[in-house]
Structures are given as C-alpha cells and as structure tokens.
Design a protein around this nucleic acid. Structure first.
Lengths: 229, 229
DNA sequence: AAAAGTCAATACGCATGCGTATGGAAATAT
DNA sequence: ATATTTCCATACGCATGCGTATTGACTTTT
C-alpha cells in the first residue's frame, strides 16, 4: 500500500444529488475524459465521496465500506490510497479547506470596493453550495479534535476578512470586529435554518427576498446588491 | 420489563461538567434528598444523562452502555426502563422540549412589554445553558427523522414568538417575519461561534459587550437591556 | 412469613465496521 | 515478453455496541 503524500490533489466537486451548484466543473479536469468512466480511482475521488457524506450526514457517518460501495469498489481498494479512516477524513477536510480558500480568493477578494465585496459575500453565502453544508455539519462534529482545530482556523479566517471589509468601509476596529461576528453568526444561523425548515422557506416570499433584507440590515449604506430579476 | 408510559417525568438538569448554568437547581427536586444518593434510578435520570451526552457529543454518540456506566449501573438495568436506544433518545428529547417550553413561558412570556421581552430573550440566548447546547447539536443530527421532526417544531415555535414580539412593537407582518428569522439566525450562529472560538471570545472585550451590540442592532429603539455592571 | 414487584448484574448472540493479509488482474515499464 | 507497479476482491480477526435471557437482591404488599 501507499499513501497520499500531500500530493495529487486535483480539484473535485461531486455533488451527487442534493447539491446543485451552478459552477463550471469541466475546467478542472485534465487527467480524465470528461464524459466517460475512469478506469481506476485516485485519492481525490475518495475525498470527494467522503465530503458528500460529511455534508449530508456528518463526520461520524463516514464509513469506508459504504463509501467504497458508493464508488463501485470494495474496501480492499481503500487501504491502498489511505492509511486509515481518520487519514481519509482529514485529507478530505483539508481538500475542502483548500477549495474554500480558493473560492474566496477568486470571487470575493477580486472585488475591490468593500461594500460590493460584502454584498458578494452575502450573496455567495446564500447559495446552496456543498461547501456550506460541510461547514454546517462540522459545527456539530467538534468532538473530534481535528475537526475542532480546522473549524477554529476556518472561522477565524472568515471573521478576519469580514472585519477587514467592514474596516475598509469605515467602521472602527472594535465595531468592525463585532459587526463581523454578527454578520457571520447570521450566515451560520441561516445555514441551519435553511436545512431545518427547507420547504417552509417560501413563507417569506423566497430566499432572495430574505437575503436582500439581511444585506440591507448588515451593510450600512451605498450600493445595493447587484440586482437582477 | 416495563416502559416509561409518557408519565413520571420530573424536571432534571444535570450539567455534569462543561455546562455551568447559574440557575437554581434545588427548586425542582422533590422526590429525593438533595444531597444524598438515591437508591435506584428512574427514567428521568436516564434522560438527563442522555441529554448530557447529546449536548456535548450529539445524538449518534448516545450509547446505552456508556450512559449506564455514567450512572453507576450496567446495561441490564436500562432495558427495564426503556424499550430500546431510540426510545431513550426520543424520551430525552421530548423532556428537553417540555423544559424548554416551560422556561420560555416563565421567563419570556411573563414579560408584557414587547421590547423588554425581546431584550430578555436575547439575554437568555446568550447564557451558557445546556438547553442551547442540545439545540445546537440537534441541528447537525437531522439525519434521524425524529430529530428533524422535533427540530422543525421547536424552530417554528421560536420563530413564531419572535415574530409576535416584533409585530407587537409595530413591525408589519412580513417584516416581522424576516426580522424574526434574522434574529433567530443570529442566535443559532452565536451558539456555534461560542463553542468554536471558546477562548478567543475575549477579543471583543467579552460576551456581554457583544450581546448588547447585537441587541442594539436587532431591537429598534426604546429601552436598553437591563444594564448592570 | 410469603408472594409479588422493582431494579440491577452477568452472560450471550448478533450485526456493524475497522484494519490486515493475501492474491489477482490490468496497465506500464524494461 | 517479462517484470513491476497499480488498483481492487476476498476473507479473516477483532472491537464495539445493541438487544435478550437469566438470575438475584432488595423492597413492598398481602
């Protein structure tokens, strides 16, 4: 057996069923034909399948034999790619963190105006991405030390760039810090709300309406969110 | 064996280690000496121990043999009180829901002025009660159908009384609905934030400061939160 | 005092799921 | 063509944890 040596990590985004993200996938694949079946699996495939499980059932639901079945192979194959279950989970989560950082860098920090940037962040946060689901489940899987560590890292990073944007708007440091905490709490709360009430969300017209309302409450003045529709 | 027949539910609040709530406990005990040991266990004891596990490790971490050990007995005793593991979990969660409703009724709805009532709610939400921890972990244990059902119920109830209070202040129905959703999202987000960052919370002075800030942002005008210190 | 009821200990069967051992087939290298 | 690497299947050992069966002690009732 050999183990993934912090290498060979193509981007992945499986999103088997419930996660309908409108991003472009095909950009990322270079090693396989986009439409046909692969002959064999690589660690990234296992990580993607693992993230699907984590997104919908949490870390403790990750079972190598089930994931193997999802991938159409048996457990025997797994231990060629990874040392053990924990290795798989940690690798998958690191991969998630990398992808998340990349998205923020591309889609948020590319925006220079801080107000527009905050609007873009709220807009991104309201989209049904698998990435959000993973974060939401991790929040309740803190028993595992490695999850707690990762979660703290990610959360601090996110709070930092929110605070930075609020300061760029003109908030003094202390208030920017609290406002970032408030905004981020709304994000986290929204994640759970959306899952908990799923159908019932139409009550308040729809999510778009609510998202605009929230942005209006949490972003001071100036430009409106890039309205369309 | 015999099973708990929807009866014999004294209030409970164990809070073994991490949950330091400053509420009065001894009020609730009537059937046992407050300081000495009980001779035998009843379903409420099992439910309380179960809620401790749920609060800190989630539903899937509930293991009857471990809980038995926590209570100083073996598994053999358990199946006299409950039919099975699922029965225990559901009973425990129902007990939690009952207690939660009771607290809201006593401490929130006893307040007539809607602004003060909202302030009281935010204040209650910021306190480190076991009840909050349980709610937070349930959010990620939605895979279990009974959890999803309960969660939806509880969330809808809470949104309803928040909306009601905002309407009592003068918000039109639609806006009150969105504002309730916003306020409740902040609550849920805060729960996770507090756990995720634990130590790091001192950065923004302390929680009190943040709680006042949030209340100031989410409750329109009028009275301030009952300031002390 | 005897019988019934209450709560708990021990021991067992069984399913799940992790990790290992071993062998095999297909691809790639030499 | 042969050897090596790569990826996977099968089979096993082992731990955990649920649920059951049986027995026993202690309490309450009669």
């Amino acid at each position: 057996m050999r183990f993934a040596e912090e290498s060979r990590h193509e981007l992945h985004c499986s999103c088997l069923n419930t996660c309908n993200d409108p991003q472009g996938h095909s950009l990322f694949y270079d090693d396989m034909k986009t439409s046909s079946k692969k002959k064999s699996l690589n660690p990234a495939d296992w990580e993607a399948a693992t993230l699907d499980v984590i997104a919908h059932q949490g870390v403790s639901a990750v079972a190598v034999e089930n994931i193997a079945k999802d991938l159409g192979v048996t457990k025997g194959s797994f231990y060629w790619h990874f040392a053990n279950r924990k290795d798989l989970i940690i690798s998958a989560l690191k991969s998630w963190q990398r992808d998340d950082r990349a998205v923020i860098k591309e889609k948020i920090w590319s925006i220079k105006d801080p107000q527009e940037r905050l609007n873009a962040w709220f807009s991104l946060s309201a989209q049904p991405l698998q990435s959000h689901l993973i974060y939401a489940t991790l929040l309740a899987d803190r028993q595992h030390d490695y999850v707690a560590k990762l979660l703290k890292e990610v959360t601090m990073e996110r709070l930092a760039y929110l605070q930075k944007s609020y300061q760029a708007i003109g908030y003094p440091e202390d208030q920017a810090k609290q406002q970032a905490l408030l905004a981020y709490s709304v994000y986290v709360g929204y994640l759970h709300m959306a899952k908990t009430l799923h159908g019932k969300f139409k009550d308040t017209d729809n999510i778009e309406s609510y998202a605009r309302y929230v942005a209006g409450q949490l972003i001071p003045s100036g430009k409106k969110p890039a309205a369309e529709g």
